[in-house]
Design a protein around this nucleic acid. Structure first.
Length: 434
RNA sequence: GGGGGAGUACCAGAGCGGUCAAAUGGGGCAGACUGUAAAUCUGUUGGCGCAGCCUUCGGAGGUUCGAAUCCUCCCUCCCCCA
């Protein structure tokens, strides 16, 4: 019933950073339950969550049982390992709402419905932490782990010894123990034997395995597996753009923007990401890489990557629209091509492009381009910036560069109703005259 | 509780009475080159009616012709000792 060797699969995909001894044996011996934690800080996943989810996906495909753990409790504390500050408490209603939304998105990757024994499940540590009293916690859990052990974790050491040490609250210090307890709880209630996560979670995960070993004895089996943190070749943070996170929720990140994100990856990143974020086989990927090398300008890797993820998250139809829009905006498209589009096509193509409405008088009166870009449409936050960008040759109307002395008039309208404004090469805005 | 240090633009970090809208680096944005890539080079990075003016250097007052720079109080953070 084990279709594939899970660890082997992750290994060639470059998704293994570290694992505890015996992990592979455990996975080849029996169907194993494993989990990945997700913070429910928003009502949508973003692509930073995708690595963990893909690990669960491969796990399930290999015949094992995936658990997605919503960190309702831990998410309120904040991991001391850096970036995240201590967080605020979410009220329970918000937490449950987020949980439901996340589950719908997870269902695009994991099978929560199958009759097979390895059906995916969603759990929330708030459910078992909320009524766990402090006193009970320190008596039952805290006494099994020494402070010395906890202090030896990198995440903690860094906070204590760093040059610019900012101190660490008791709450943050406790984080690893609370997370460790999750593993113990799942071990006892769900027969969960493996926790997975990013390599920054190694310390927290091993606190869990250690807690299980000390509390349940050395015959209790608990393993850890981490994947490397996803990076960009240029050192930037993965998954962020100037406009923020890339979300899976089409309301937060349009399918067009989502598709564009992947299409825009550098060659180096695309080769790495395609292994992590798609299910293409090794042969398929190697073939693509060869094709890419022979004709790099065609960007086969980026296209394949963008296609597969966009379909999985947003569906076939959304992908098609995103591709069409990209073709018109970035292809050989000219003003003429734009003018030929009928209104319906134009609207569907630009669905994912931010749009602004302005009143018709502004155009019939003919508007100064700077006024048009700032006060009327708010495409630029300040006139100075608009002026600067115009001087730098960075603004186009309907795909034609414009100068700062232009008067915008009805002649610039597409379908007598729209103007396509372009800020730089990649930022489009559809201005709609009403 | 005692002693010391720090808070400057997106971040890091200079400046310590006028020449400061504030060095430098990073980041961002744009342009050139390209393949909607990377690297590189260039420009730009508070606002406006832009050779001028207005609002900024934790907060509130004060000294001075003039303060990011000096004084007072407050807030926040860090370090060391107890």
């Amino acid at each position: 019933m084990m279709h594939k060797n899970f660890v082997e699969e992750l290994r060639w995909r470059g998704m293994i950073h570290d694992l505890t001894p015996g992990t592979e044996e455990q996975l080849s011996n029996e169907m194993t339950t494993a989990y990945v934690g997700i913070d429910p800080t928003a009502d949508s996943l973003h692509i930073g969550h995708l690595v963990g989810i893909m690990m669960l996906k491969h796990l399930q495909m290999a015949g094992h049982r995936p658990l997605a753990l919503i960190g309702g409790a831990t998410g309120m504390i904040g991991d001391p390992s850096g970036k995240s500050q201590e967080r605020n408490l979410l009220d329970e209603a918000t937490l449950r709402h987020n949980q439901e939304c996340l589950k719908l998105q997870l269902a695009k990757f994991l099978d929560f419905k199958t009759e097979a024994p390895n059906k995916a499940a969603l759990v929330n540590n708030y459910d078992w932490m909320k009524s766990f009293s402090f006193l009970d916690f320190i008596r039952e859990i805290g006494k099994h782990i020494t402070v010395n052990y906890m202090m030896s974790k990198d995440s903690v050491k860094k906070r204590l010894t760093a040059e610019n040490a900012t101190g660490m609250s008791f709450t943050e210090f406790t984080y690893q123990l609370v997370q460790g307890y999750d593993f113990l709880h799942l071990h006892q209630h769900e027969n969960c034997k493996l926790q997975m996560g990013g390599s920054d979670q190694w310390g927290n995960i091993t606190t869990g395995t250690e807690l299980i070993r000390r509390k349940l004895g050395s015959e209790a089996k608990a393993f850890a597996l981490t994947c490397p943190l996803i990076t960009k070749a240029d050192g930037g943070k993965f998954g962020k753009t100037e406009s923020g996170n890339i979300w899976l929720d089409p309301e937060k990140t349009t399918p067009y923007a989502f598709y564009q994100f992947w299409l825009n990856c550098s060659d180096e990143d695309a080769a790495k990401y395609i292994k992590i974020f798609t299910l293409m086989t090794r042969q398929e990927i190697e073939k693509l890489e060869q094709e890419h090398q022979q004709a790099p300008h065609q960007r086969q890797l980026q296209k394949a990557l963008a296609q597969e993820i966009t379909i999985r998250v947003h569906g076939e139809e959304a992908l098609q629209l995103a591709e069409e829009a990209s073709q018109i905006l970035f292809g050989k498209g000219t003003t003429d091509a734009l003018r030929k589009l009928d209104e319906k096509t134009l609207l569907s193509v630009f669905e994912g492009v931010p749009s602004v409405e302005i009143s018709r008088d502004i155009i019939t009166e003919t508007a100064d381009i700077i006024e048009f870009l700032t006060t009327h449409t708010a495409i630029f936050p300040s006139k100075g910036e608009a002026r600067r960008m115009l001087k730098d040759n960075g603004v186009s109307l309907n795909k034609e560069k414009v100068k700062d002395d232009l008067q915008v008039g009805t002649a610039d309208l597409l379908n007598n109703k729209y103007i396509l404004v372009q800020k730089g090469k990649k930022n489009y805005y559809l201005v709609r005259v009403v």
